[in-house]
Design a protein around this nucleic acid. Sequence first.
DNA 1: CTTTAAAAGTTAGCGCCTCTCACATATGTA
DNA 2: TACATATGTGAGAGGCGCTAACTTTTAAAG
Lengths: 201, 201
Amino acid sequence: MAKSDTVERRSAYHHGDLRGALILATRQLIEEKGIDHFSVSDACRLAGVSTAAPYKHFKSKEGMVEAAVVDAMERHHAGLVEDIAKTEKGSMERIVAMGLNYIGFAVSEPAMFKLRFGHNEPEDSATSVAGQEVYLAVQEEVRAALREPVINDRVLERSFMLWSFVHGLSYLSMNPNHLDKSGSQPLEPLLHNVARRVLAD
Amino acid sequence: MAKSDTVERRSAYHHGDLRGALILATRQLIEEKGIDHFSVSDACRLAGVSTAAPYKHFKSKEGMVEAAVVDAMERHHAGLVEDIAKTEKGSMERIVAMGLNYIGFAVSEPAMFKLRFGHNEPEDSATSVAGQEVYLAVQEEVRAALREPVINDRVLERSFMLWSFVHGLSYLSMNPNHLDKSGSQPLEPLLHNVARRVLAD
DNA sequence: CTTTAAAAGTTAGCGCCTCTCACATATGTA
DNA sequence: TACATATGTGAGAGGCGCTAACTTTTAAAG
């Protein structure tokens, strides 16, 4: 309890929640101008604090960006859980809903999405752990769709295939001018098509 | 002829080929320390020139990195053409060989590979054009494997599916500790499995 | 061979950025 | 109220991206 307690209390000192405000500013600036043109100074101006303030919350610029990405992953996971709750467990519709949710996140926060996969994080890093939650959810739903009792190698294989397709489709969807490379189908039928192939036999 | 002539002559002045040397230094440093810790100054030190020299060849740091990525894409395409020449046109082996080549490049130059997809280049940018050459080669081979006379929507759809999967597999292969998420199969049988599904019916 | 314009390199330096250090202030607890 | 700790600020060191002005090398023309 010691650690999470500390983190929560941190949210109520001077600024109210400077850590959260900086994470938000970081995301907005990166989505707007690109990671190459992002600076801690800009984020400080946006949050209305001095340029030294962030270093009480993050150990470096890199750590600040990573925190923004972790935050995005966590929101993505929460949204995913919410979205699929509207569909029936083990149904094709749920698999398609997951794909649409994944692509929807990529389109709405493309910079965060790309940063998630642009760095080679060590396995136990916060980014990796947060990103894995989404993938674990995919595995569980594929397991249900395949009527398997546990997540075995068959489930892992098909989950990975599905994830690959959806991931690739996300990249194309972020660059709308490249969408015709998929054969110009609308998203939902294409996802059904792919899910059928991946889950078949 | 005016333009390419100029570019080629440029390669034989003072340094011999500073442009090429800087592209090489840029790639080496980015692969070694990551894009976040890359600086033009470091590349200059490695190439043995002043920090102002690069700006005679590239308009900015961004342009220098992009040139390194374009160079990587061109080498990738050349290697792909060479690799598939060893297999029979229209065969499953050729499709699998392309997948292995793609993944091989991702593993050998992961930073270049990620930069290729980490930026949202305008459609006509050099990066985009160079990257498209590889994808056009994929489409042509899928067309041959499907016995289609031209690259129609069916070919586009299956090419995209194949590319998505191979792309996803590349990301996992760059992080070897994540490879078990694909069901722990060795690469080649897994590629056969996927190619069969994608090309079927 | 000399002249000349352009290409390719250097030095100096401006402005911005990251990050640290010393110091100031707010907060919860004893 | 006193204290320890968590947050914040201001000043500044050191580094980087990029430009301006200048020098040197090269290719081409007379």
